[in-house]
């Protein structure tokens, strides 16, 4: 780690101001950022700790949706009674991230700002059709994740919260990398009043939806409806743990399991 200045603002305006400085960066749970600093893969003049900003905290419920502050840890999402009742699949997803230590520190905002292709939350954000609130604007999930580790966020734009519409049903199935436990393939299958959404993380450079599966599930929301649907793996990630072919196969298997979970 190289030396950096550490700021700990207690309100959003101050944080925004601090983040206008050259070579500054927000830090949330630090689960991704700190390892890259320690390995000297990244270096900043200053880090702005978002943990004391009230606007980024808390889980609140409206009639249609649940709003989760960007600084909410995976563990708090996993254990929230509100989320367990309204969107159990989201609670389950948060509980499947990494290990206990990572869940106790890692945050929703940090995860989606980072946009790791193997992260779980992108599947929930896109699958549930969430809205990302930033200090400047609202961004629809379908427009948020743009490419590998790329999002629609501008330089140091702060995510304040994410609103997840409450679905009729939803299920998440993850095939974890046995070493890191990130998703090799994770599928979120969701039924809402306005339609079906199937979002896949882990398989490609960025989270994506599967229109063929959404259509099939519109006709019958059953595992069998998607089991036979093969997705093209031509653009999929390939590494020592899973070839593109294997990932392609797993998308169908995990989609069926996600639907089973939603129906359970």
């Amino acid at each position: 780690m190289y030396q950096f200045a550490y700021h700990h603002p207690d309100n959003l305006n101050q944080a925004k101001e601090l983040l206008t400085a050259e070579e500054s960066k927000p830090i949330a749970g630090g689960m991704t950022l700190i390892p890259t600093l320690k390995q000297r893969l990244a270096a900043y003049e200053s880090l702005v700790d978002l943990s004391s900003i009230a606007e980024l905290q808390g889980i609140s419920e409206t009639s249609e949706s649940i709003r989760i502050g960007a600084m909410t840890t995976h563990s708090d999402v996993h254990h929230s009674d509100t989320i367990k009742t309204k969107i159990p699949a989201l609670s389950h997803l948060a509980g499947s991230i990494g290990d206990v230590q990572v869940r106790n520190r890692g945050t929703l905002g940090g995860s989606i700002a980072n946009a790791d292709p193997a992260a779980d939350y992108p599947a929930a954000v896109v699958g549930l059709g969430a809205t990302i609130h930033t200090a400047e604007r609202d961004i629809a999930a379908d427009n948020f994740f743009t490419a590998l580790f790329e999002t629609a966020l501008k330089e140091n734009e702060i995510i304040t919260a994410v609103s997840f519409p409450v679905p009729e049903k939803a299920g998440y199935a993850k095939f974890a990398n046995p070493a890191s436990r990130y998703a090799i393939v994770g599928v979120m299958a969701v039924k809402t009043r306005s339609g079906i959404r199937v979002a896949v993380t882990g398989a490609a450079g960025s989270v994506f939806r599967v229109p063929e599966m959404e259509q099939a599930l519109g006709d019958a929301f059953t595992a069998d409806a998607v089991r036979g649907i093969a997705v093209s793996s031509a653009e999929f990630n390939s590494d020592m743990h899973a070839t593109a072919d294997y990932r392609g196969h797993l998308v169908s298997v995990m989609a069926a399991r996600a639907v089973d979970a939603a129906n359970a």
Partner: peptide
């Protein structure tokens, strides 16, 4: 079932951390 040490053709250690080396 889990552990393996993998070098690529250039001799770079692909399993150089617990992200890829499965204990």
């Amino acid at each position: 079932l889990l552990e393996r040490c993998v070098y690529d053709e250039q001799g770079q250690l692909l399993t150089g951390s617990y992200m890829d080396y499965c204990m």
